[in-house]
């Protein structure tokens, strides 16, 4: 047993990277759910984003193009979900699950022929001055750009939801779509935009896995990350600030248990792996009523 070998600075630094894909997917889903829509297809959108992003990055040799394509692909798939649930009034839970099934298959089909190829490199950003600050520098300021883009999106979503009229409309639609409709807000248009934003973010999260984290292609790359993203949204009780804590907690428990294992501490891995989910349930109980958007998961059809 050797706790001394765990370096807290490096631990925190790797945490930021580990949390990025789930953070990206989760912030998108958070917006979707704040608009009153429950999209369980995050995993499907993530994996399609990861494959198409990867293919585009290989084709152009430019990782940025890959991220762009991944976002568009995620949004496109999400639009399909949006049309189904918003115009054809299908059940959101069932449609989301179907989307995951569809996405997993589609990704595997599209990825054929790319097995074992390697993504173009995507170097870390070495922010001058800030990156050289002792302790904080390596933790916070020496990552690849997507880490910061992820954080920027979280900040942007917070600002949008709390400080803009658009955010107000979105929240109103999510809380009570009948009332929002009565006030003359465009419930369906708002929701479609939110769903597409969610898809784009999930696509980015997936592409982060295939272009930065793994960076070679293999089938089933996301390995359940989309489901963790769903959990984090709940853990955060639909607030962007807490989402950050949630993503770091989920990433953190993984990183911590790996660190403890490597340091030779005998821990029951399965039970530690359960802990974030149990923590999420506890958070749900403590936050309890009123925190979930009022119209979450309900179908809206304007009756006249």
């Amino acid at each position: 047993m050797d706790f001394g070998s765990i370096n807290p600075i490096l631990l925190l630094a790797s945490l930021m990277v580990a949390a990025t894909p789930i953070l990206l997917a989760a912030i998108g889903e958070l917006v979707v759910e704040r608009a009153g829509v429950l999209n369980l297809g995050v995993e499907g959108m993530m994996i399609v984003g990861s494959v198409l992003g990867f293919v585009a990055a290989i084709g152009t040799g430019n990782a940025w193009v890959g991220f762009g394509v991944a976002a568009v692909a995620g949004a496109g798939l999400a639009l399909m979900f949006g049309i189904l649930t918003q115009y054809l009034l299908t059940n959101q839970v069932a449609s989301g699950l179907a989307l995951t099934l569809f996405g997993l298959g589609l990704a595997a089909l599209l990825g054929q022929g790319y097995l074992g190829t390697k993504a173009p490199s995507f170097p870390d950003l070495h922010i001058p001055v800030l990156g050289d600050i002792p302790v904080i520098g390596p933790i916070v300021f020496q990552h690849d750009p997507m880490v910061y883009i992820g954080l920027a999106i979280v900040a942007g979503v917070w600002w949008f939801l709390n400080k803009t009229r658009g955010g107000l409309v979105l929240r109103a639609v999510g809380e009570n779509h009948e009332a929002a409709h009565a006030l003359g807000y465009h419930v369906i248009r708002t929701r479609l935009l939110a769903i597409m934003f969610g898809g784009a973010c999930a696509g980015l999260g997936g592409a982060y896995l295939s272009i930065v984290r793994v960076p070679t292609y293999a089938e089933g790359l996301t390995a359940g990350a989309g489901w963790i993203a769903l959990a984090i949204v709940v853990f955060a009780s639909w607030k962007p600030g807490r989402l950050l804590i949630g993503a770091y907690l989920f990433g953190g428990v993984t990183v911590l248990q790996l660190n403890l294992q490597a340091a030779g501490v005998a821990i029951p891995v399965e039970y530690l792996s359960m802990s974030p989910y149990i923590a999420t349930i506890l958070v749900l109980v403590i936050m309890s009523a009123g925190s979930a958007p009022g119209s979450l998961g309900k179908t809206f059809h304007a009756s006249r």
Binding site: M80, A98, F102, L104, G105, A108, L109, Q112
Partner: peptide
């Protein structure tokens, strides 16, 4: 390929 079957099932559900 197994993936094609999965896509097909997804379409059926949609």
């Amino acid at each position: 390929p197994g993936a094609a079957i999965q896509v097909f099932q997804g379409m059926l559900l949609f």
